[in-house]
Structure formats: C-alpha cells, structure tokens
Amino acid sequence: MPQYLIKRIGQAVFTLFCVLTFAFVLGRATGKPAGLLLPDSATPAEVDALNGALGFNEPLHVQYLTFLANVLRGDFGTSYRQRESALALIAERLPATFELAFWSFLLGLLLAVLAATAIQLTGSRTLRSLFIWGGSLRHSVPDFFFALLAGLLFSVALGMLPSLGRTSPASLVLPVLTIATGQFVLYVRLIDSALSDQAGQDYVRTAFSKGQSRARVLFSHMLPNSVLPVLTMAGLNLGSLLGGTVVVEAVFAWPGLGQVLTEAVSQRDFPIVQAGLLVVALIFVTVNLAVDLIAAKIDPRVSLA
C-alpha cells in the first residue's frame, strides 16, 4: 500500500510536470504579452522594454528553466493585470468552484440513483424510457441556453431566485440545477445498465433464494455492487466540474475558476493561466487517485500493488 501510494504520487508529479510544460509552451506560442498589456499608443520601444521586464526577451530555454525553478519554490509569478500573486488569485476562486461542483455533482448523481432504483423496483420499461428520454432532451439543450431559460423563468418572470453572482445560498440553485440536470441522463444510463447487469448475476438469485425481498436485494446487494462501474465515470465528471465550468459560470456570473481562467487566457495573463492549469491538473490527479483507493476499499478482490 505505501509502495503503491509512492508510485502513484510519482506518476502524479510526472503528470503535473507535463501539464506545466504544455502550459508554458502553448503560452509562449501565442506571442509576447506586452502588446496587449500596454495601451495602443505605446511605442515599440516601450513594448520591448515591458517584455524585457517580464522576462520574455531571454532565450526560450532560460525562460523555461526559470519558470520551473520558480514553480518549485511555489512562485507562479504575479498577475500582469491585477498585480497580485497568481496562485492567490486562483486559490481565491476555489471555494466558489468547489461549492458549485460539489452540489451539482451530488444532486445529479442523487437524482440518477433515485431514478435508476425506481426503474429497477418497478421493473417498468415506461419509466426507464421516460427518464432516459427526458434526460436526453435536457442534455441535448446546451447548458448556456438552459441556464438562460431558467434565469428568465425563475429570476425575471417569477422573481424567486437570484440569477447573477454568489451572494446567498439561493444563488446556488440555478447554476446547480443547470449542471445537475445536464448530467442526469449520463448517470441514469450508467447506473441503470450497471444495475441491470447485476440483476442477472447468480449472487442476486442466491439472495432471492434466501427469501430476501426485491427492495432489500436491490439496496443491500445490487446497488453497492453497481458502485464500481459507476465510480470511474463519476470521478472523471467530478474532476472536470472541479476544474471549473466555463459556460455556466459565465451565464450566472459565478466567480469560479472557469471564469478567471478564460479571462486570463484572453488577456495573455500567463502566470494565472499556468497556476490555474496546475491546480486543475492537481484536482484531477487527486480525484483519480481517490477513485482508485475507493474502488480498492469497496472491492476486496482489488489489491493495490
């Protein structure tokens, strides 16, 4: 187990190194930032001077090594525009993103588990079609459009919920609803097929042969055993939600990672982009490791080696 962890952490470090390199290379490929940072009236000499001050006139390999050395010290540089530590600017956005990601993920998964268990308990094909059809319909509407409609209905027409910003718990409702309902059908399909898979297993027949009721067989045997196939997919989804949801954050003016990253990219604010990408990659790697550890915890046949 400790050996396994060391191996996984080693892999994670390598992944993060690759992400940093990509961030660096792709960033430099877009050119030097000073032209965008200075007003149009700036002279070429001024632009060149600023580029030089930011270190862009050094040879590329020197820039790269300086960058890596700084990152190792935890220094991602200062935002070109906001004159604050890039890492601090990213960290500031994390609570909002985590809050949105966590609740959206939880609600989507919960709704899907409820729907899938209802399908199994009733054995109704109509119910299955209804959930999958309805979920697919919602999924096929782009999130930004659904978000606008939801905002129109609940904020503008009914005045029940705030449509912008992160000011109160009620602010969460519309963004969470948008993401959760969009992901619902993915989970329903996944859980339903996992459950149907389990339903045909011999051990389920054994459970019935003991005189166990349908509901208990579902909840104590089939559902726990369906977690494994669902877990991987759910982990990937959670990872990408935690990395920030650009569209939904933009529509609802949610002050999350997605928002700050897109702004930074368009402004060529490299320190923020680099810090942001590293944090997102770190989240992904952590969630994946957690998924594997949980899978090993659930399935006694899996040995971590």
Partner: peptide
C-alpha cells in the same frame, strides 16, 4: 464461484 456476492 458466482453464487456468492463477491463484495460481502
């Protein structure tokens, strides 16, 4: 081999 629940 398959009649027992592998996770319990």
């Amino acid at each position: 081999m398959s009649a027992l629940n592998p996770l319990q």
